[in-house]
């Protein structure tokens, strides 16, 4: 039996603060591992290390240097090139795969869905090592077996082919993953809409344009934004595939350049600057995408 005294006891008073205690672990971890490093890196971008013990305040000099740095611009272009490749090649392919594997006409859909999804389960490092062999100029599978382009292409040794090779590898790795999102989106579209359209005489293409795509808008927005963020954070694949961005920085990306500056060149301030510029770029692109896709519009 509970007594009146118990109801106002010390423990019962604690119930008021209990919810805060339960959510505290997240905030503590967020502040320690995210909040503090974020603010610290912003501060760091206005400094440069002088050895291991001291740092020098340089104001906006890191930002000025960055905008004058040709390797940064090259890395930014390579990253943008990859992002465009993702946008133009990978995401339409993922949507196409999703439509095909959502169709009852295709046999063995479950096996195919699994087959297309599996690459994302493989670690990027292994994918890079395997594609290194596939893209090899003389012994590689693509040049040796297919010779699609009528000549041996230096996929990883000629500057102009390096990023296309990275994009093709990215397509193999991620198209199946994005397909799953589209597939989920497609399965959420009500069948009655298609039936009503068919009654009105709409053909397949008209149904696709006027029903499928608008219904998929939230999924498309999600996949586009997440893929763009992922593309701009590209690191492990080209780092291993191109041996750190070679030849002549043809495979260098922004995050790779950040890593090199931070860890290989011990220029932590400059690396922090690259990180914040990358954050701003990603934020602008993500907001622009969401705006273009009308996600901010009220229903």
């Amino acid at each position: 039996m509970k007594t009146g005294r118990n109801r106002f006891s010390y423990w019962h008073q604690q119930q008021r603060i209990a919810p805060y205690l339960f959510i505290a672990p997240f905030y503590i971890l967020f502040i320690v591992f995210m909040g503090y490093p974020l603010i610290s890196s912003l501060v760091m971008s206005f400094y440069e290390m002088r050895g291991f013990q001291s740092r020098i305040f340089v104001g906006f000099a890191n930002f000025v240097d960055l905008f004058r740095d040709p390797i940064f611009w090259k890395s930014l272009w390579n990253t943008t090139y990859f992002a465009l490749g993702t946008l133009i090649l990978q995401l339409p392919l993922a949507l196409l795969l999703a439509i095909l594997l959502n169709s009852k006409v295709v046999k063995g859909r479950n096996i195919l869905r699994l087959a297309f999804f599996v690459p994302v389960l493989v670690a990027g490092v292994f994918i890079a090592i395997i594609f290194n062999l596939i893209f090899d100029q003389r012994a590689g599978l693509i040049n040796n077996e297919f010779l699609i382009f009528g000549k041996e292409i230096g996929w990883l040794s000629e500057s102009k082919y390096v990023m296309p090779a990275v994009i093709l590898t990215g397509v193999w790795q991620w198209a199946g993953f994005n397909m799953i999102f589209f597939l989920a989106g497609l399965q959420g579209i009500r069948q009655e809409l298609y039936e009503a359209a068919a009654v009105d005489g709409a053909n397949w293409w008209q149904s696709f344009i006027h029903i499928t795509l608008p219904s998929l808008r939230p999924v498309i927005a999600f996949v586009f934004v997440v893929s763009m963020i992922g593309s701009f954070q590209l690191f492990d694949l080209p780092f291993i595939l191109t041996n750190g961005g070679e030849p002549a920085d043809a495979g260098s990306t922004i995050v790779m350049y950040l890593y090199k500056n931070g860890f290989q060149f011990m220029r932590l301030g400059y690396a922090a600057t690259i990180g914040w510029v990358l954050f701003i770029i990603i934020a602008i692109i993500s907001i622009a995408q969401l705006k273009l896709l009308g996600i901010f519009q009220e229903e």
Binding site: M49, R50, G51, F52, Q53, S54, F263, F265, M266, L268
Partner: peptide, 30 residues
């Protein structure tokens, strides 16, 4: 070495990596 905490007593370093550890004042080398 940067955080002044957690470094080993003895360590092997590769030739292309040692340069970065020599940055700054010579007395600050770890």
């Amino acid at each position: 070495l940067l955080s002044d905490f957690g470094a080993p007593d003895v360590v092997e370093v590769e030739i292309t990596s040692i340069g970065r550890f020599l940055k700054g004042d010579i007395d600050e080398v770890g």
